[in-house]
């Protein structure tokens, strides 16, 4: 709710202005500059650059690398968000009832999402190592095969995915719990009077009433997983066809190959994708806020 105008225009600007200046300098300006650079042959080393028209974009579209990274990122986002949502929701259902020490257990479960992906990803290399990692030692103890998680090209993406699921399932768990807690107990009681079965209650009450928040959580995670960089860098480095996401491709092109112009063209296309998803997210959030669900 906005009240009547209470202050002079400069006063508003004094409160809001500095933040907007910061965001324009560090977001709007880089975006615009990216567009300009995308039409040049700028390199990381050396200052000179010339306009090359749409040559970079021509290369981007004729080169399979960008399409591959886009496909891989989409696959990664889909697998990560779906598994995190399913596991998170499942654990949230199990955590629904009150019990002693619930607060402590919940806090412990949530810790992984607060940690540094780069640091934890690096450390996961020790856990996943094919020859001396503890995961394979456990698999050995129970008589299962011990794959080379981080070096087998068919398993590298799975390794990144496992770490991502470990880190981000708590995010889904927390939001799913909030959704479950927001369902009034009286609805469950009414269902009990109607002798509704457990499955009917879940399908007709629990699921539809938590769905809006779960969708919001999934969109949130999608915008985040789309940026996937830290874990891929930790497990395989930027230039591995089995795991090259959009962000690591950008890193490879700009910082390893030094091709700033080409990288900027890539970045502009990545930003189109990001802005599209962000728009879906903010629209959905707006709808939820109007309905006062969120």
């Amino acid at each position: 709710m906005n009240g009547p105008p209470m202050g002079a225009r400069w006063l508003k600007l004094g409160f809001v202005g500095p933040t907007l200046v910061f965001l324009i300098a560090f977001n709007v300006f880089p975006l615009a500059y990216n567009v300009v650079l995308g039409f040049t042959n700028a390199e990381l080393v050396g200052g000179g650059r010339e306009g090359v028209g749409g040559a970079n974009y021509g290369r981007v579209f004729s080169d399979a690398q960008f399409a591959d990274a886009l496909r891989l990122t989409a696959l990664f986002v889909f697998l990560a968000v779906t598994s995190e949502l399913l596991i998170g929701f499942g654990v949230a259902l199990a955590l629904q009832r009150r019990f002693r020490g619930k607060g402590a257990v919940l806090t412990a479960l949530l810790v992984p999402m607060m940690l540094s992906p780069a640091v934890m990803g690096l450390y996961w290399n020790l856990i996943l190592n094919g020859n001396y990692g503890v995961l394979n030692q456990v698999l050995d103890a129970v008589g299962l095969a011990q794959p080379q998680w981080t070096t087998d090209k068919n398993l590298k993406l799975l390794s990144v995915l496992m770490i991502d699921v470990w880190m981000w399932t708590p995010f889904m768990l927390l939001i799913a719990l909030a959704g479950l807690n927001s369902i009034p107990q009286s609805i469950y009681e009414a269902a009990e009077i109607d002798r509704a079965g457990r499955w009917t209650v879940f399908r007709r009450i629990t699921l539809p009433m938590t769905a809006p928040l779960l969708v919001l959580a999934a969109l949130f995670r999608t915008t985040d997983a789309l940026k996937q960089f830290d874990l891929v860098m930790a497990v395989t480095g930027p230039n591995d066809a089995a795991t090259q996401t959009l962000s690591t491709l950008l890193y490879q092109v700009v910082f390893r190959d030094g091709r700033v112009g080409l990288g900027s063209a890539y970045a502009c296309l990545v930003l189109v994708v990001v802005i599209a998803i962000a728009t879906v997210f903010t629209r959905y959030l707006d709808i939820l806020q109007r309905r006062a669900v969120a």
Partner: peptide
């Protein structure tokens, strides 16, 4: 404005880092 502010969070660092680096 508020949604603009929120959306700045969605930018992948690697997609805006080159202009920042040159700046």
């Amino acid at each position: 404005w508020l949604f603009f502010i929120l959306s700045t969070r969605f930018m992948p660092p690697l997609a805006v880092v080159v202009p920042v680096l040159l700046m």
